[in-house]
Structures are given as C-alpha cells and as structure tokens.
Design a protein around this nucleic acid. Structure first.
Length: 608
RNA sequence: CGGGGCGUGGCUCAGCCUGGUAGAGCGCUCGGUUCGGGACCGAGAGGUCGAAGGUUCAAAUCCUUUCGCCCCGACCA
C-alpha cells in the first residue's frame, strides 16, 4: 500500500496494519500463565527468546518508548541529567565497592579474550559513583541528579510470569549526590513525587510501602507497589490514611479479647484425639480459637565460619492467628545472631525433634514449664489469661493458663500475619491485604558507596566529606506488564492511552467497498497529518477479524467505517474501555477523535 | 537447589500406556462463493516427533543420558 503525502511524494507508510508486524494469536500460548504474559504474546507485543529473555516486537517497543519518555520528562522536571552507561563492566569496578563477591550467582559474569573478569551490570551504583568520585570535588558542584534508562541483567534463580520477572530488562536508575542529609532528604522527596507522577500518568494505581533496604544498604527506602494477583508480595494498605506495608512488616489494630476477672489455677484435662485448634474449639470443655495459645516449634540454623548450629525455639500465637515467617525469622535472629553467629535459615522442627524436646507430639504442645529453649510470644498474647494450650502430654491440654504467670516468655515480638479487614494501625480505617507487584524502589543510600569507593568533596569549611547518595529505580517493562494486569477484559488489553502503542485505529470494515475504503483513507490521512498516533487497519479481512484484533491489542479508540452507516454519512467512534460506540458524522470523525484523544491524555497526565 | 509438568508442521494439541506407512483444528498458498464480532467449498504447501546413545527385524512410542521451557517451593532485586 502506498501513501501519497501532501507533497505528492510517494512513500511507503508502515503505519498500515497490512504491512505492520503484529503477529496476533487466536489461542492462549501454552507457556503463559499470568494474564499480562498471555496478552503480551497473543496481542503480538513480545516473543520469548529464552527463560526470562524477551524480544519486544514493534508494538511493545512503541509502548516501552512511551513509558520511557514519560519517565524522562518527570526526571528532567526535577533536574535530572540523563546519562548512558555501559552494560558491560570490568570486575574492578565491582571489587571497589565489595559487591563483586556480595552479589553471588545473581550476577552474569564473563571473561574477555585475555582472561579478564567482567560482568553485565545488574544496577549502576558503582558506575555512577565512579564518575562522581573522579569529577566531583567541591560542595559547590552539588547537588547532582543523574539518571539513565538502560538494560540490566540479573541471573534470576527463577524467571517467570512473562515480563514480570526476567533476566534482561530496562531500568530507569537515578542517583543523587548531596553534601548532607538534608540535601538527600530533599532529593528523595523529589524522586518520590516524580515517581507518583510517572505511575499515575501510565495509568497505574499504586501504593507506597516502607521497605527494608536489603543489600543496597542505607537508611530509608520506599517501594512502589501495584495491586495485582500476578504480584509476588503481600501488601497491607489503608485506603483512608495511605498507611501501607509489606505483610512482613505490617501491623494491625485488632479488638482486645475479654478474658474475665478470675484467673484460676492451671488445670490439666484429657482431650483424646484433639490435634488442631479447630478440634479443641469443637471439643466439649474446649475453648474458642482466640482463647487458645498456639505453640509452634521452629529451628533456627546459624553459621559461623565453617561451623553450623541449630537452635530450637517455641513461637506462641493466639489460636486464630497465623505466624509470619519473616517476622519470626527477624525475632529469632536477634537472639541467635551474636558472638559472630549469623542466622541462615529458619524452618519448622521435624517431628522427632519436637518429640525429643517436648515429650509430646504436635497437637498437644504448650509452653508452660518450658525453660530450656527460647520462647517467643506474639504481642497479641500480652496480658492474656484463662487460656487453653497443650500440656506436652499427648491427648491432654491445660486450661486457666495465664501467660505472664504461667509461661516464661523470653521475648515478646510481633509475629502474626495481618489479614484483610483488620483495623489500620494508624487510623480508624480498614486494611486491604492482597498480592502486589513492585514497580519501583527508592533508597536513601547515605555514604555507603561514597565511603567504600572514595567519593568525597570539600565542604564549605574546606574539609573532605563523603558525598551523601540516593538511588532510585523503575522497572520499565514492569510498568507495561502491570498496566495490562490492571487494564484488560475478556477481549484483550485495554491500554491506558499514554502508553498505548497507537492511540487510535482506523478500520474500514470492508476495503473492497470503494466508498468505505476512500473514507478510511481520508480519515487516516487527516489524523496522521495532524500528528495523531494512528494505525490504519487496511487489511482485506472480515470485519470480525478486524474488530477482534483491535480489541485484543487494546487500542484506546477505533473509528469503524461500515458500508451501511456510511451511506447515511456516518461512521462509528468506538471506546475500547467501555466497548461502546457512537455514531458520528463521517466528516467530523477526525475532529471528534482528536478531541477525545486529547481529553483522555489530559486525564491521565494531570492525575495527582 | 528441591518437587511437579511439558517438548510432535507457524499456533493449540491428539498419537506414546499396548513399538508396525506421522494426524486433527486453527493459520498459510491458490481458485470460487461470501462480507459488521475470528465465514464456506475445493485444491495445495509445510514436520530431523528437542538432542545423543541404546534395545529391536522395526522407535514419536521402550531404556539411558542430556538440553530446553513452564509451574510450585526455596532464594531474591
């Protein structure tokens, strides 16, 4: 198909579907599990090259470029300066910070022909800091806000879920360099605000959670999370006050249980066959779940050089509460990690270990009288009395147990997992708990890298001080995948217009009808020359194919031109999000389209 | 790394248990009829059955090894 431009010069116009590479699939690919993965493949956006390695076909590339451009605009708006660093790094760079050994097998490593060690960058703190240490000399040069949009490589132990967990991906990473903590605080707040704008403009609903700084080091960090079942974290958040936290840290406000006044003496009673909390609830003379103490036996495994040691301990929770492994691991680590020992794992005790320690089997365990191993009790048990728990004798339990009186608690800690519907710890709101996907992470690094790599400047007093740094990442393809997870229906993707590969598709429903075709040509030409991001579905396909394909790829708008309505001088303007169309005069279609596109763009770009 | 599953035309899958001439639907090519939600008829093209080795007169099918991919778990930016 050739297109005659205004100047009359013949040119091949590739924005015609008949000549554009969009390999759509009618059926779900067998490899795909999560929605975004299926749709990325079916709509002809990506193809897989290997585990966690994907080719972006033209549609995905357009989308990725749009996301990148939004990020670029928001970074520039807070004074960011764009760099482009190599992806291939000499080992010395990473040895300088000490992370050559810390990163372990997650880093792709290779040798050059001379046997020199190299790696593929998984992040760029070292690279940016290297430039900073070589060229920043005075506080007068600060602050600096540097960023790049670049490919990262991580040898993930388990790539999965299409673009959500991959081994090669695009990241916007930014680094800030300040003279002091106050400067870092401001840089951090700027980034945080910019991130909010980026995600809003891309059509993502997100929550910001406090996070562990992990291997990055530093003092504070926030994760930007999008609620989706395809996510890998569980996040609790309050819609009312913006409290949000990973369930590994989240707290909740729960109503107190009235234990009554009198605390009688501990009494053992037989409970034949009772093994679970529920069994005891239903047992005559038993107790409600929230009146029981659940006793779990765990083993902390720790290492010191080549030595290993196992520490058995008890974890106590209210009968109706679930333990959180991360909280538990942190609590026991505080007891185990001393004299050079470092905890490497926490696991449930084996049945033999339990019997040897307690003299009874799981189902009849309790902490009353236990003194030889640490007992960690959940905060929700504090002050409770008249409780029921196992007697450490099979088929027997104890009643009238009062925690503080009858159990020797080594440590009180928050061990329980918050659940949906519990009270927000910060306000009177109700918590939402669901799976979420991390789409960005910002850190206050402090001086970790500037000290280890020697990046310092002279301050106003002429004293040499380490630069105070921040580090900020956005996963570009994760925005694309998250947008699809959030915005799709049975027919396919429903692209937010800001990141849609094309804003609108013009579809003559029968190209053999001369009038229909001519009207399609005209509308397409006018939209294209007005600078609209338009794709022309000039294929000689049945109407059903065109309509289904357009829905599948998820172009926000479509102009449908059919023979019957065209005879009345009308075409249809279709809105993908609502799947509804309205009749408009053919000669006004372009004006209406431009106005709708403008309005849709504005709604997203002005959000927040 | 532990557990499970799968590799057969471009895609989705059957055939494997019980060895005996490689199949279906979709897609693709050509001709015709159709033409607003993935049409119909007719004629075609297209496959080292992931790879290697073994057993056998004979292997997609049985055995061994190996590679790849997906899922659950562990781990983790």
């Amino acid at each position: 198909m050739l297109h005659r431009s205004a100047s009359g010069i013949r040119r091949l116009n590739v924005m015609r579907w008949s000549n554009y590479f969009i390999p759509t699939l009618r059926e779900d690919p067998s490899d795909a599990e999560v929605v975004s993965h299926k749709l990325l493949l079916r709509a002809g956006l990506v193809r897989q090259m290997g585990a966690g390695i994907y080719t972006y076909l033209p549609l995905a590339q357009r989308s990725v470029l749009k996301i990148s451009e939004i990020i670029r605009q928001e970074m520039n708006a807070i004074g960011g300066q764009e760099f482009f660093f190599p992806a291939l790094h000499p080992a010395e760079l990473w040895q300088a910070s000490g992370r050559w050994s810390v990163m372990g097998p997650n880093m792709f490593r290779l040798k050059d022909r001379k046997g020199g060690d190299y790696c593929l960058g998984m992040t760029h703190e070292e690279a940016f800091t290297d430039i900073a240490r070589n060229h920043l000399r005075s506080y007068k040069q600060l602050p600096q806000v540097w960023y790049q949009i670049q490919t990262k490589f991580r040898d993930e132990p388990r790539p999965k879920s299409g673009l959500l967990r991959v081994r090669q991906f695009t990241m916007k990473d930014a680094y800030t360099f300040d003279i002091d903590q106050a400067g870092l605080d401001k840089a951090f707040d700027d980034q945080r605000a910019a991130y909010c704008k980026v995600y809003s403009r891309c059509g993502l609903d997100f929550v910001i959670v406090d996070a562990d700084s992990g291997s990055m080091g530093g003092s504070a960090s926030n994760e930007f999370m999008v609620y989706t079942d395809a996510g890998e974290d569980l996040v609790a958040s309050c819609p009312k006050c913006r409290y949000a936290a990973n369930t590994e840290k989240a707290q909740a406000r729960i109503p107190a249980v009235d234990d009554g006044e009198v605390a009688g003496a501990v009494e053992k009673f037989p409970t034949p066959g009772v093994r679970t909390i529920d069994d005891l609830v239903n047992f005559a003379g038993g107790a409600a779940a929230n009146k029981q103490i659940k006793t779990l036996i765990y083993v902390s495994v720790a290492a010191k050089g080549d030595n290993a040691k196992n520490t058995l301990f008890l974890a106590l929770l209210r009968g109706d509460h679930q333990v959180n492994d991360a909280k538990l691991a942190n609590a026991i680590a505080k007891i185990v990690n001393k004299d050079g020992w470092e905890q490497t794992a926490v696991r449930p005790a084996h049945p033999e270990e339990i019997f040897e320690l307690m003299g009874a089997h799981a189902g009849s365990l309790g902490a009353v009288g236990v003194t030889k191993v640490p007992v960690i009790a959940d905060e929700a048990l504090r002050g409770r009395q008249n409780m029921t728990t196992g007697a450490n004798e099979d088929d027997h339990h104890l009643r009238n147990v009062s925690i503080e009186r009858d159990i020797k608690v080594t440590t009180w800690a928050d061990l329980r997992t918050v659940v949906e519907g519990e009270g927000c710890p910060k306000c009177d709101g109700v918590l939402r708990v669901a799976k979420a996907l991390e789409v960005g992470h910002i850190f206050k690094l402090g001086t970790k890298y500037s000290v280890s790599m020697g990046a310092s400047v002279l301050n106003a007093e002429g004293k040499e001080v380490p630069i105070v740094m921040g580090s900020y990442g956005i996963g570009v393809e994760r925005i694309l995948a998250a947008a699809i997870e959030l915005h799709h229906d049975d027919a396919g993707i429903v692209f937010p217009i800001t990141i849609a590969p094309f804003q609108i598709v013009v579809s003559p429903l029968n190209v053999k009808d001369a009038d229909v075709k001519a009207t399609g040509d005209r509308i397409y030409d006018e939209l294209a020359s007005a600078g609209v991001d338009v794709l022309y579905d000039d294929r000689d396909e049945r109407a059903g194919v065109k309509l289904n394909d357009a829905d599948l790829v998820g172009f926000p708008f479509q102009i449908r031109i059919g023979p019957k309505k065209l005879k009345e001088g009308k075409v249809e303007f279709y809105d993908r999000a609502t799947k509804t169309s309205e009749e408009v005069a053919a000669d006004q279609a372009v004006a209406i389209a431009r106005q709708r596109i403008q309005a849709a763009l504005q709604t997203l770009n002005d959000a927040k």
